[in-house]
Structures are given as structure tokens and as C-alpha cells.
Write a protein that binds this DNA or RNA. Structure first.
Length: 467
RNA sequence: GUCCCCAUCGUCUAGCCCGGUCCAGGACACCGGCCUUUCACGCCGGCGACAGGGGUUCGAAUCCCCUUGGGGACGCCA
């Protein structure tokens, strides 16, 4: 079997969005799975809308997602000579011709066709005029008037298009620059692309592209048109549906592994399995189980999956990922033993890295600010002596472990006759500033004895001072 | 308007190709309960779908047709 060669061809007219990331992923996964080649090509022939910043943003997002490419990036703007060579060949072989119809004339033709209840299209006016190239001519492909062009698609099955419904479309603009459909086909041919997985909004372009392949006498690739990702109201995903660029999910604290897991499952399945590690995805991905219908993006499910990935990661891996988010909150932490312990206490209760960073702040803070409601409820006058007693007992411990801490609690419970919660909650507020935190023992242990005692004493003192 | 694609719980989906094992399975969300020092995690349970109508068949979520609904494309954009 030949080596599979796939590609991802983004247009640099914005950030890498969800839909683009998903098609990139499908192509990448399939190439990786088959030990094939994944090519990156920047389709920047629209020089007005394409920007360098977009290219950088897209590359940056791909890198973040861990989607690497084996070849490229190629830039279509640097390949004009190649396109023109093929266009000349098409004209020479009689498969294409020059046309000097003005846009106004073509508009009129479209209106005329529409009035007849037909698809608006160019009527072939210049087809037999044998024009030569001049500064106002475009090149059009001579498409068949009869018969059908059948797209064999690995996800949609076969679809027949009437050739009569395909007009002699432009392959080269009057300014000499190739049009999209031609550039794509020439690129795919010259880059040896044999597997094209793309959004199904391109399905209609496919017969046109097939006609170019045929005119060029080139072998067709395998096509797979995957359904689009829609917004929560089933309309095309747009800004009003919330974040649509993968960069935004990065800032929300989504893990790249969770992002690709979610994106792949949106339109592909492996039985009932929901959770996939990266390697597992590469191993199990296939074209046979790509879905045929459009799907809506669901942030809740992404979040839930992200929580699962956070739980399964090692504290080491998580620390590297978390550090930037801590830095964002002004915390200069390191990937050290302390941070790893901190992370372990937070793993089961964080949906995003942002959640985790926020919940981690108290571990690193020099000064604990008490939440007003929490202090009012738990740092009452009678808590002063209790906290002082706790600090004293913890300080006196030979060893600072779960067992010894439990013993301290037990002793104080017996001494005071108070329930566990009556001691734990004031302590929690004293140490974290809030009523919500990881389990009291694991949290105290992760924080360390020194900080723990210091904070409890400070809280006891402040209660004292308030009286 | 013309052409094309799609159609299972609110959402993502399994099942559909090769009809019976499906009075339809899983996940997210939601609602109960358990666990519990808080918040979570986890566990148990509940709610909840084959768009509608015709066929074909002993039998249809699965095959065929129509309707409806949704999406996409009709550019000297990609």
C-alpha cells in the first residue's frame, strides 16, 4: 500500500478555529496512524485578507495542540509560477480558454439563468472565440455539458453531480493569479496528496476539482468530507456562540489533550469510548467511523473531559502546564516538590487549569485575606483559643504526618467536646481564607507545617485583637 | 430560485452498510441518594430519542419513496 499523504490547508484570514482544528486533527491523526505524511500548506492567495499574524496564530495553535507537520508550511503565494505552468498547459491542450467577459456581463448571464429557474452560471460565451491572453482576460476551464461527475467519498458515499450544472469556472484571474480550485488541485497533485479530508462545505467544489484532475490527466485522491461543527443553535459556529478559536480555549485553561479528545469525538467514534489519550487516538482513529451529520459544539462536555484529563495527568506534567496560569495570577511558582503536592490536592476538584491556579493561590500567598462571610461565621471569638490550641499542638508534634495531625484533632475533640467540623472549618478559614478547600489533612500537609502554624497563629491573633 | 448534504435522548454519540440479540446502549447536562470536615472526586439510581407518513418484509432505528426540518454551496473569496 502506498504511503498516505494528507494535508491541512488553512487560509490565514483569522485564528485557527474549532472547525479548522478538527479537520487538521483528522488529517494529522490519519497520517500518524498510517505512518504517513502530513503536509501543512497556507492558502494565502487572497492577498487582501491574508495576514502574517494569522499565519503565526495558526501555527502557534497547532503547536499548542501538538499537531506537527512533516512537510511545509508551503505558501501558495510563492507558487504562482507552478500554477501558471499548469494553466498554460490546460490552455494548450484545449481544456481551458481565455475569456474577456466583464463582471457585468457575467452578472447578467447569472440573472438570466436564475430567471429561467436555473443555477446562476456563466454561459460559455467565450468558449469558442479562441481569444489570446491580454490584460483583461481570465482563464476558464472548459467543462463538459453533459454526463455526470461522481464524487466517491469515504464518509458521504457517492454523489452524482450533473455536469450541466457546472459552469466554465475561472481558474486564473485577469491579474494572472490562479484561483482557489486550481491552486488546490495543482498543490495536491504536486505534493502527492492522496487523501483529502476536509469540511463538507467543500463537497460542491469537489466535482470542479475532479474536472481539473481529469483535464490534467492526474490521479484522484481519496476524498472524505466531514460535517461541519455548528453553534449551540445549529447555525454556523460564530462569535456569538462563545469562543471559537482554539487560542481562547487555551486561555480558559483547557489541556491540549482534552481539546483534541473532544474535537475528535465530535464526529468520530470508537464504540462507547469517550476518553482517549493522544497515543490511543493515533492507534484507534479510522476513516470508517467518521460521522455523517453536523454536530453542535458543547462547552460543558469539553469541560467535563478536561476535568478527566486533569485527573489522569501526573502532577509533573500538570505543573508545567499550570505554571503559566499561576504566573498570570502573579504567582512565581516552580515545578518542584511543593507545587506537585499542591497539584495533587487540587486534581480531583479542578475543571480547568484556570480553576486550579485560582484554587492554588492560597498555598503560595504570603498574606491570607479572609473572606468576609467565612470569617464572620467561623472566626468568632471562641475560635481564638481553639486555634491557638491547634497551633500549639501542631507545633509540638514530633512528626508532621496525616496520622499525627489526626491525633491532634482527636485530642482536641475530646478536650473540647466539639465535633470534627467545628474544628476543621475554623482551621480551614484560618489557613486558606475560605470555607472551600481540599481535604483538611491533605491540604495542611501540602502546605507544610511552618506555614500552617504561622497562619493559624495569625488568625488566632487577629481574633484576639478584634475583641 | 437552483444544486448538494444531513436527520437516534436537550447535546455528543453506539447501533444502520450485512433487517430479528434494541419496548434502543454509553457520555455530558439535569434530578434524587450514598460517601463526607467544606468543595469536589467517586459510586448507585432516575429523567430522556429512532422527525412524520407511506411502502418492502413473518419482522425495520436498520432497506426504498415522499414530506418536513436543519445545514451548506451557487464569487475575478478560500
Amino acid at each position: 500500500m502506498n504511503t498516505i499523504i494528507t494535508r491541512f490547508p488553512p487560509s490565514p484570514t483569522g485564528y485557527l478555529h474549532i472547525g479548522g482544528a478538527r479537520t487538521a486533527l483528522f488529517n494529522w491523526l490519519y497520517a500518524r496512524k498510517t505512518k504517513g505524511t502530513f503536509v501543512l500548506r497556507i492558502e494565502d492567495t487572497d492577498e487582501i485578507r491574508s495576514t502574517r499574524e494569522s499565519v503565526d496564530a495558526i501555527l502557534d495553535s497547532m503547536e499548542w495542540l501538538g499537531i506537527d507537520w512533516d512537510d511545509g508550511p508551503y505558501f501558495q503565494t510563492q507558487r504562482h509560477d507552478i500554477y501558471n505552468e499548469y494553466i498554460d498547459r490546460l490552455v494548450a491542450s484545449g481544456h481551458a480558454y481565455y475569456c474577456d467577459c466583464t463582471p457585468e456581463m457575467v452578472d447578467a448571464m447569472r440573472e438570466e439563468a436564475k430567471a429561467k429557474g436555473l443555477k446562476p452560471m456563466y454561459n460559455g460565451h467565450c468558449r469558442e472565440r479562441n481569444l489570446t491572453q491580454s490584460n483583461n482576460t481570465v482563464v476558464r476551464l472548459k467543462t463538459p455539458d453533459t454526463g455526470v461527475t461522481v464524487v466517491e467519498d469515504v464518509v458521504k458515499g457517492s454523489t452524482a453531480f450533473q455536469n450541466a450544472g457546472i459552469d466554465d469556472f475561472i481558474i486564473q484571474r485577469s491579474n494572472g493569479v490562479a484561483m482557489y480550485n486550481l491552486a488546490v488541485v495543482v498543490d495536491d497533485i504536486t505534493m502527492n496528496i492522496n487523501t483529502v479530508i476536509r469540511g463538507d462545505d467543500h463537497l460542491i467544489n469537489t466535482p470542479k476539482q475532479m474536472l481539473i484532475y481529469q483535464a490534467l490527466n492526474a490521479e484522484l485522491p481519496i476524498f472524505g468530507h466531514v460535517p461541519m461543527v455548528l453553534g449551540s443553535d445549529k447555525s454556523r459556529l460564530s462569535k456569538r456562540h462563545g469562543a471559537m478559536s482554539v487560542g481562547e480555549y487555551r486561555t480558559m485553561g483547557i489541556l491540549p489533550d482534552a481539546m483534541i479528545n473532544y474535537l475528535v469525538r465530535l464526529g468520530w467514534s470508537h464504540g462507547d469510548q469517550e476518553f482517549f489519550e493522544r497515543d490511543e487516538l493515533i492507534e484507534k482513529f479510522d476513516l470508517e467511523h467518521l460521522g455523517r451529520s453536523a454536530s453542535m459544539f458543547d462547552t460543558d462536555k469539553l469541560m467535563a473531559l478536561n476535568a478527566k484529563h486533569i485527573q489522569k495527568k501526573s502532577p509533573e506534567e500538570l505543573a508545567d502546564a499550570l505554571l503559566p496560569y499561576l504566573a498570570e495570577l502573579g504567582i512565581d511558582a516552580a515545578n518542584d516538590g511543593f507545587t506537585k503536592e499542591v497539584i495533587q490536592t487540587l486534581q480531583p476538584r479542578s475543571r480547568t487549569l484556570v480553576d486550579m491556579a485560582e484554587a492554588a493561590v492560597f498555598y503560595y500567598a504570603d498574606e491570607i485575606a479572609f473572606e468576609e462571610k467565612a470569617a464572620k461565621k467561623f472566626l468568632k471569638p471562641e475560635a481564638g483559643p481553639l486555634l491557638a490550641r491547634c497551633a500549639e499542638a501542631i507545633e509540638a508534634l514530633d512528626a508532621y504526618t496525616q496520622e499525627t495531625l489526626e491525633a491532634v484533632f482527636k485530642a482536641i475533640m475530646e478536650e473540647t467536646g466539639l465535633g470534627f467540623g467545628k474544628i476543621a472549618q475554623p482551621l480551614r478559614v484560618a489557613v486558606t481564607g475560605t470555607t472551600v478547600s481540599p481535604g483538611i489533612f491533605e491540604m495542611l500537609l501540602a502546605l507544610g507545617r511552618e506555614k500552617t502554624v504561622l497562619r493559624i497563629k495569625k488568625a488566632a491573633d487577629s481574633i484576639q485583637a478584634a475583641q
